[in-house]
Amino acid sequence: MRRPASYTFTMRKLTKAFGLGAGFLLICASVWAHHGSAISYDTAHLWSTWATVTEFNYLNPHPSMTFDRTTKDGKVEHWVSELLTNPSALARAGWTKSRSVEALKPGTRVKLFIGTSRVGGFSGIVMKIENEKGENIVGERANATAVDMDGVPGGLQPKPGEKGE
């Protein structure tokens, strides 16, 4: 096997690459920092779905996001959601405003892990977001198990005929 006479590599690059990975494994901090959102959603039964971001707001008290998802029947649903983690915690986890806005710009396809609204409707709290590479983005919580949204019993799903807003 041929080897170059000498080669140099940068520890900083490896460290940076691992640092991003370590960011994905951050332990979830206190999640209900502001505003008692948990009570509005069924966070005991999470759903996962692929979705396309239509709007993202990196704002206090919790970032908010609207997205479209397509059911297995090809129907497009329009959802509203808030994100679990507030901006200060996101920033400390490395998800600054510019980085988060870029990661969730309109048109971005993401996999969302959601607790849906307990009163029904196309509303939820996003506990975890993965990009198309399966990387955890814009959040602290790496460990969230969920069931795919289509065709699964239990939990709270939008009622048939429910109109999204």
Binding site: H35, S37, S40, Y41, N57, L59, N60, P61, H62, S64, V80, S81, E82, P87, S88, A91, S117, V119, G120, G121, S123, G124, I125, E165
Partner: peptide, 23 residues
């Protein structure tokens, strides 16, 4: 420390999502 303000206009936007969640 961060300037982690509660801004009324941000809160008003958030509350539209909050209200949707609460029906």
């Amino acid at each position: 420390i961060l300037e982690d303000r509660c801004i009324p206009s941000d809160e008003a936007l958030f509350n539209t999502f909050r209200n949707h969640a609460g029906g």
